[in-house]
């Protein structure tokens, strides 16, 4: 079982993930239409790139009014995302696995740090969950899929934490390890097909809106979109 989930199934999930997100990006870009969107994407590419860069810069860093207006939520979401993306990529155990298979490796996080980062993801996830259940503004927007997506995103971290600490929880290390790998694979596969596609589409959207402001909405007269 372990061989199967960590071998062929892992390869398949990575393949679906990569091919999937590439297809989504290509589909996104091909669907842009200068006349329907009313943005001269290619004619004013220079202004567009400037606007896109500003848009990304102000949001990859917490330099926007939403962060100023909602500091707690935004701090949690930045932390959540940073830990969520970095932990699996730089986790020692993951890098070792990859080195064994493909003979490539990169820097790793100390286990202790990775452990805290995992906890941060889980804690942030619980914060999102509580907010969804209690805040009337979030409640009215929430659909079942929001919970499912949150669960898909958190599951690898929760199960990874259990496996790393070798908690038995009535099943044993091997079991939790397999479940952890499966959860990770489910997440990878879910990314192109669910709202988690925002992994890449959020960048697409930010770039598009940045171009819109840079090209048409004042980028050539004022500051473009101002944060």
């Amino acid at each position: 079982m372990y061989e199967f989930v960590s071998g062929p199934l892992a390869l398949i999930s990575f393949a679906i993930f990569f091919v999937g997100i590439i297809i989504r990006i290509v589909w996104y870009v091909k669907g842009l239409d200068w006349q329907l969107d009313r943005v001269a994407y290619s004619e004013k590419l220079g202004a567009g790139i400037k606007g896109a860069a500003r848009s990304l810069f102000h949001w990859l860093l917490p330099l926007n009014r939403t962060t100023a207006n909602h500091p707690v939520f935004m701090a949690v979401t930045y932390l959540f995302h940073i830990c969520l993306v970095l932990t699996p990529i730089f986790l020692m155990a993951h890098v070792v696995l990859i080195e064994e298979s493909w003979n490539i490796s990169w820097v790793t996080l100390p286990d202790k740090v990775a452990d805290y980062m995992t906890l941060a993801v889980i804690a942030a996830g619980i914060f999102f969950l509580i907010r969804r259940l209690t805040d009337p503004n979030v409640k009215i927007l929430t659909t079942a899929s929001d919970y499912i997506v949150l669960a898909i995103a958190l599951a690898p971290f929760i199960t990874g934490y259990i496996a790393y600490h070798q908690w038995e929880l009535g099943a044993g290390y091997k079991f939790w390890l397999i479940i952890h790998i499966l959860c990770g694979e489910i997440m990878l596969i879910a990314i192109p097909f669910t709202k988690l596609s925002h992994f890449v589409l959020s960048f697409c959207s930010r770039i598009q809106l940045g171009m819109d402001y840079g090209i048409k909405r004042g980028g050539t007269k004022g500051r473009g979109i101002a944060w």
Partner: peptide, 22 residues
């Protein structure tokens, strides 16, 4: 014919986070 990737993506990826409320 007219609802293309920009609009469909916006509808799909909305995090339902309510940050736009205020």
């Amino acid at each position: 014919a007219t609802c293309k990737s920009r609009l469909r993506t916006w509808l799909e990826i909305c995090a339902h986070c309510s940050l736009c409320a205020d």
